[in-house]
Design a binder for these strands. Structure first.
Lengths: 223, 223
DNA sequence: AACAAAATTTAGACAAATCTAAAAAAAGGT
DNA sequence: ACCTTTTTTTAGATTTGTCTAAATTTTGTT
């Protein structure tokens, strides 16, 4: 598989998450930042190689093989991200770009040794699960902050948006994976929320709260 | 620069070592395992980008810029090889292939952090020098075993041929970088040599001796 | 059901990197 | 100096991945 083919497979996998429906050409074009006509060309090639099911005008769906490939690439991507943070002191907003390149390196031994070096991590620096050698990943109880009851508590376990802008925002407010967060209350008007993190109280917009995952630890709490 | 362009630049650099002459199309085609016609196409493109000097029928020579690029790729290649051996327990005959891929990853930060993680190594697992950030490398007193006086002593500091076959041969005879070697004598007939390494005496062919570098430590020795 | 809008595919073009076969230039031998 | 061999370049084709513009199919709305 070429890098480009791998990227398409990965893109389709991501769009398929949360829905058993076929992925449309336009949706995939948006994901890949390319034109629908280019997508049509590529998916024909991938269908030829049995990496996806394709019926004209009906969108695509990964085959078993395609899914396996996607999981391999995702495993590599997330292991490399973990490596960059754990071993090379990258911050969580810097790793994506480099991991996009590293995920295409072909060497099973390399991946497995990397996994061992990192002590077989279950989650990457953004809280996303890392598939094991067989493509299986651990799941974990998590809820968007915006969906948490008020009052309640939780531990930050992941982000939905992992853009540098968002991650830097979190850094500035000392929100990181593993951080304990108290959910104080919610404003009825704009759904903004008041939370307490590291002894500091802060007000966050619905947009922010909708991109932060917590593992709930208590339905309520006494001050 | 594309991967292919980088590979050509690297290939030209390697052929240029030990000689100020221009590199011929045929020689480069052999190095790159491709056809002369393909080489002509590529060197035109590279000349266009001022990475090399090219006059029809006169071969090529890297420019300043071209050399700088080559050294960057070589630095990356050798740092990755060191990483694979030091951190991921690869053996010295397994690293080349993977490093061929890793050397194309673009991230200055990654390279520098890797360098730091490895404690700024001067030489890679085959004894080849690793250029620093500015493209400068340490040199070291070394001599082919075949050129050593008899009797004498030295420490193994590098290999000329780094093919898996040769490296595995060395492994089998417990010859590794840093190993002390006593040069016992040389057979006038076929130039084969008797050496002592790790308490074991062994007979090695001229071919082998011509691919192993020693740092001389003593002109002679008493048993 | 008919028609307009949106989505999708096709057709044709282009750049990168390669190849084969043929032409041109350089090198070598007598 | 001439002719042959080798080297190098050119010409034309192929594959991968992309694009624009045009044609086609599907969807949605009245």
């Amino acid at each position: 598989m070429t890098h480009s083919e791998e990227n398409y497979i990965k893109g389709i996998y991501h769009l398929s998450q949360g829905g058993k429906n076929a992925i449309s050409t336009t949706a995939l074009a948006a994901q890949m930042e390319t034109k629908p006509s280019s997508v049509t060309d590529m998916i024909k090639r991938l269908a030829e190689k049995d990496l996806l099911h394709y019926r004209k005008y009906q969108g695509v769906r990964l085959t078993e093989t395609g899914t396996r490939h996607a999981l391999k690439v995702i495993r590599k991507h997330r292991l490399w991200e973990s490596f960059l943070v754990e071993k090379l002191d990258f911050s969580w907003d810097e790793v994506h770009e480099v991991a996009e390149q590293l995920e295409h390196i072909e060497s099973e031994k390399l991946v497995d040794r990397l996994d061992a070096l990192l002590n077989y991590p279950d989650f990457d620096p953004h809280g996303d699960p890392i598939p094991d050698k067989n493509g299986v990943f651990k799941t974990r109880d998590k809820k968007l902050l915006s969906a948490m009851p008020v009052p309640s508590m939780g531990v930050c376990v992941g982000v939905r948006d992992s853009s540098p802008a968002f991650l830097k925002f979190l850094d500035r407010h000392h929100i990181a994976l593993g951080r304990e967060i108290r959910v104080l209350d919610r404003e009825a008007f704009d759904h903004s929320m008041r939370i307490e993190v590291g002894g500091q109280t802060l007000q966050i917009s619905h947009q922010i709260a909708g991109n932060l995952y917590l593992k709930p630890t208590a339905d309520s709490w006494k001050p």
